[in-house]
Structure formats: C-alpha cells, structure tokens
Design a protein around this nucleic acid. Structure first.
Length: 575
DNA sequence: GCCGTTTTCGGCCCGACTGTTTTCAGTCG
C-alpha cells in the first residue's frame, strides 16, 4: 500500500539528518525534511509515479524527484550513500536522544569518537565529557535521562509498526495452500501501545509449508528457530515474529492461549483447574478422562469455563473475569461507532492536505460530521491569524453538507498557556463550533501549577476537548506531572471531554488513565489529530486504546448523533 | 533544495527556553 512512500520518507529524512550532522545548509535540511513529510503523507503510491508526478507533490522539485526515481529504480541513492560513508550509523542514532541534536552529536563524534548511544552513556558515566564545550553537568544529566527514557521502551516496537508487519505476514501466509485460519495474537491483538514480538497463528493440517513460507519471506533477515511446531524470524526492521501452526480443531484454544495476557491466562487456567479441567493451547481437557471438551473456537472455550467471550482488548486481568461472571462486560466502542473526527488539521497550518481533500477523505469514511481544528496563533510557527481563521470558516460553511451530507464543524486547537489561559479573546472563541485545547509548551511545571493550569483550561466555557492531555510521546517523553484525579474530576464537572489521541506515538490518554477518568464520570473523544489524509485511518489505534480503557459508545462524544454532540459542546450554556 | 515569481535569485514557520555562553548556540514545538 503506502509502503514505498514510507520507505522514501525514511530515506529522505535520513539524508536530511546526515546533512544536518555533517554541517550542511540548514535550509537544505529543511527542504529534505519537508519533502520527506510530504511524500509520507501523500495518498498516491510514489512507486507508480513518474518524474512529473513526483514533482506535483508539494516540496518535491527536480533534485529530489531524481533521487526518488533513482531509489525506486536501483534501491539506493548515490548521494545518500556518500553521506552515509562519512559518519558511522550510530552517530545518527545519537540524535534520537531527546535534547541531543545534530551539532552536539557531531561534536561528540569528532572530539571523542562516540558513535553510539551506549558509548555515550559509558562516556558520561566515566566523566569523559568533562572538558567538552557545551556539555556541562546539567546537559549530561539530561542526556542520561533521555537515554533512560529510550531504554525503557527497550526493544519494544510501536503498535502501528507491529500491526503493519503482522498484517503483511498474515496476508502472505493466508495465501499458502492448506491454510484454514490465520491471524495475529499476543499483545498485538490486545492492542497494547508497544509490542515485544509478534505472534502469528495458523490453523492447518500440515505445518511445514507455513514454517517454510515464513522463513523464506523477503523481509526475514534472520531465522532464529525453524521447527515443526514453531518458527521464529527477525525481520529486516528488527522485529521478532513467532509463528505457531495448530491443528484446526485446536484453533480456539490456541488463539485464547496465545492472546494472553499472562495474568488473564493464569485466571482462566485456574478456573479450569477448579472445574477438574486443564487448559492448554491445544484445548480444554477433562483431567480424569483426558478428553477434549472444548477447543474449536474461543467462544466454546470461554463458554465451557462459564464465561462469555471476552474481547481481546480487555484480557489484562483488570476485572474482566469478574465483570464477565456478573454478565457486565462493557459493550465496547468500535471503529464503526465513530461518527466523526473532532481534531484534524489542514495545510492552513501544519497539515499537508488542503481543506477540500481532508473533507473529501473524511466523507469517504462515512462520517456524519467532521471538525477542522487548525492551530491557533500562539503556536507562532504556524502563523495563524484572525483573518485566516475567519476565511477558513467561510470556506467550511460553503462546503458544509456538500459531501455525502457530512456536516462540518469549524474548530481550532488552542494552546494552553502556563497560567491556563488560551489564544484569542472570549468573543472570538465563541465563533468556533468546537475548541480543542492542548499543551504545547512549559511541560516542566510543578504538579501544583500544572494541575491549576489544566483545571483553568477546562473551566473555560469555550474549551470542549483537552487534546493529548498528558502530552507524552511513547519512548521519547514522559507525560507532564499533574494531579490527574483532580483534572479528570474537573473534566467531568465542566463537560470537557478528554481526548484519546490516536497518533500511534501518543495514544494519549493511555488505557490506565482512561480507566481512572471514567471512574470520575468524564467523557472522551477519540480523535486522529490527522495532519494528512492518510492519518484519518489511524483512528483504529485510538479505538484499541479506548477499548483497553473499557469505553462504550456512551462514553465517547464522537459516537453521538450531531444533535447530542452540539448539546455537549455548549458546556451547559443554554444558548 | 524548493518555491514563486520581480522568470533568476532571495527567502525559506518564528519564538521560547535551556544551559552555559560572557553574548549565544542548540533544541524544540
């Protein structure tokens, strides 16, 4: 699908990084970064475009189009190879550390020959940066903290990359002759925000063809194990994939067993034992007779244990067994329940696509309504003005209802200042249909100040949604420190929805915060924060997270009919 | 390197914050 675009995006971004590290023209760096982003977010497959088609993509000119053509033709780009030869790959890895940019990375390499994250950590521990200009005590502390954050993510890969890889492999194996069933399991099926390794299951009489097919995949860089029951590979992207082939009659038990989590499985196995049964990946067996009593489907296995089928996203032993026994499993929100996206951007600020394209793509998804929420003036780099916002509103009103009857809401993403104040005066805010408010600066306030700041934002009668509330970036930045119980309670009281931002590196709020917020009676909005047409499809990650937080359609304002949504957006005002 | 034009070259998202700088470079959003 969009895979070639992503490859080209990564390549151009790498080239930009390499130019930046080796001290090239900063504007050239920006040019490559912009082109990378434009290609990554471009809806059409770049491998099917000719030079003219490539140059029609914004920010792609003659030089970059040529490099892309060269890459698509030969698999490499001479200019990139030449830059790669100048510095070890590890130097580029250094700039993935928060607070460490290209200039400092180059200094570390040139002066101390440091060319990997681990070498840097060791050098700091050994106090080797002592005399290096620009690396004082505080800087070293920040670097260690950054490295620590990265290592906490420790080898785990983000949900969306895992899902892409898994779907590709499942599609491949499903085509192998004899395949009765094939799907992914494990933490990926539970939609955890990061994944250790990918579990793929196949139901078939004979396992060998599938084991061979997996090992023979072009994306298999290394075969770790190759047997009759299990084969493991490591992909070129460094992801471990474990394949299990089960007899078709064991499919349900196998799926249940390999979906986990460990805690959930311990609970189900314990329940089995208490009933004189034994649960394994091959089935549910009567201990005395050794007879299989259930194994074909998950429903059958759960039913024999006295439980309804439990959705995978709930299987964490966070009360789902008890709820199931009481017959009180939540009716989880699904992607089909979502009637509209309430946080999206256009090229008026930092989005890639024009308003009309975003609206058309949203209508294609079958939405009943759709909000455009470009950035507000205080995010200076976006250069928003009153005039631009009002002109956009005119265009939105003209487009409203013209695409499959989809209704358009004109909104904005406000910036929450250090004191909890937001962009624009009250009377101007009143002109918007919806306001998302987010933190984009001052992440380091103390808990008390941060709490007061967020509370004040929620108490603003025009703020409807708290955007990416904690502002964490998975594996890169911790969320801000606040008394979240207080914030959630205020959200519930004021009618401010908490966003579940579906961007895969955010997933903010996270599942555990959602559970807490729901306890307080807060409402939620599952939004993509889309900056391109392609991002609209990232909704699925937000939905997975919402499900992990036990949310039902009632909890999520953008599953509601427009009339109910509009009532919520008035925040209790009668008008 | 891209773009838009003034069709040939100058401007390119701008400002804040941090740490270490002795007057500002580097990083970030």
């Amino acid at each position: 699908m969009a895979r070639p675009n992503e490859e080209v995006e990564a390549l151009l971004q790498e080239y930009a990084d390499l130019i930046a590290i080796t001290g090239g023209d900063a504007f050239k760096v920006r040019a490559y970064e912009k082109a990378a982003r434009a290609i990554g977010g471009h809806p059409a497959d770049v491998s099917r475009l000719d030079a003219d088609g490539l140059r029609d993509i914004p920010n792609v000119g003659r030089s970059i189009a040529e490099k892309v053509m060269e890459y698509l033709r030969t698999g490499t780009v001479t200019a990139v190879e030449e830059r790669r030869a100048k510095i070890p790959a590890g130097v580029r890895e250094l700039i993935t550390i928060p607070t460490l940019g290209p200039k400092k990375a180059m200094r570390l390499y040139q002066d101390l020959h440091i060319s990997s994250v681990s070498e840097l950590a060791a050098a700091i521990e050994a106090d080797a940066l002592h005399d290096l200009k620009g690396f004082g005590e505080k800087t070293q502390e920040n670097l260690l903290h950054g490295i620590d954050l990265m290592q906490q993510a420790g080898g785990r890969i983000p949900l969306h990359l895992a899902l892409d890889t898994a779907e590709e492999i499942v599609s491949e194996l499903s085509g192998v002759s004899g395949c009765r069933r094939c799907t992914h399991a494990g933490s990926l099926r539970r939609m955890k925000e990061t994944i250790g390794d990918i579990d793929v299951l196949v139901a078939a009489q004979r396992s060998a063809p599938f084991m061979d097919a997996l090992a023979a995949l072009p994306s298999a860089a290394e075969v770790i194990a190759h047997g009759t029951k299990k084969t493991s590979i490591r992909t070129t992207k460094g992801v471990q994939v474990d394949l299990r082939v089960l007899p078709p009659e064991s499919w349900g038990a196998g799926l249940q067993y390999f979906t986990g989590s460990k805690a959930h499985n311990i609970r189900t196995r314990t329940m089995a034992v208490r009933q004189g049964l034994k649960l394994s990946e091959y089935g549910l067996f009567d201990v005395d007779s050794g007879e299989s009593v259930a194994s074909r489907s998950e429903e059958e296995v759960y039913a024999r244990l006295g439980l309804p089928w439990i959705p995978p996203t709930l299987r964490e032993d966070r009360g789902e067994i008890e709820a199931a026994l009481r017959g009180e499993l939540p009716d989880l929100v699904t992607e089909r329940n979502i009637r509209g996206d309430l946080h999206t951007h256009t090229d008026l600020t930092d989005g890639l696509a024009p308003l009309e394209e975003m609206v058309a793509a949203a209508a294609e998804r079958g939405y009943a309504y759709y909000a455009i929420t470009d950035h507000a003036p205080r995010l200076y780099m976006q250069r928003m003005t009153d005039e631009k916002a009002l002109a956009q509103r005119e265009r939105i009103r003209a487009l409203d209802g013209t695409r499959h009857g989809m209704r358009l809401l004109h909104g904005t993403e406000l910036n929450i200042g250090p004191e909890g104040d937001v962009d624009w005066p009250e009377e101007f805010l009143a002109g918007f249909d919806i306001c998302v408010a987010s933190l984009h600066s001052h992440f380091d306030l103390g808990r008390k100040e941060m709490t007061a700041r967020l509370v004040r934002a929620c108490e603003n009668p025009h703020v409807n949604v708290l955007g990416h509330p904690t502002t964490r970036l998975i594996g890169k930045r911790k969320g801000v420190d606040a008394d979240w119980d207080e914030v959630f309670a205020v959200c519930a009281r004021t009618g401010t929805a908490l966003e579940i931002n579906a961007q895969p590196d955010r997933l903010d709020l996270c599942d555990e915060d959602i559970l807490r917020a729901k306890e307080h009676g807060a409402k939620f909005a599952v939004n993509t924060d889309a900056h391109s047409v392609l991002h609209l499809a990232q909704l699925r990650y937000g939905i997975g997270t919402a499900q992990r937080g036990w949310l039902t359609p009632d909890d999520v304002i953008n599953t509601w009919p427009l009339r109910s949504l509009r009532r919520f957006l008035r925040k209790g005002a009668s008008a």
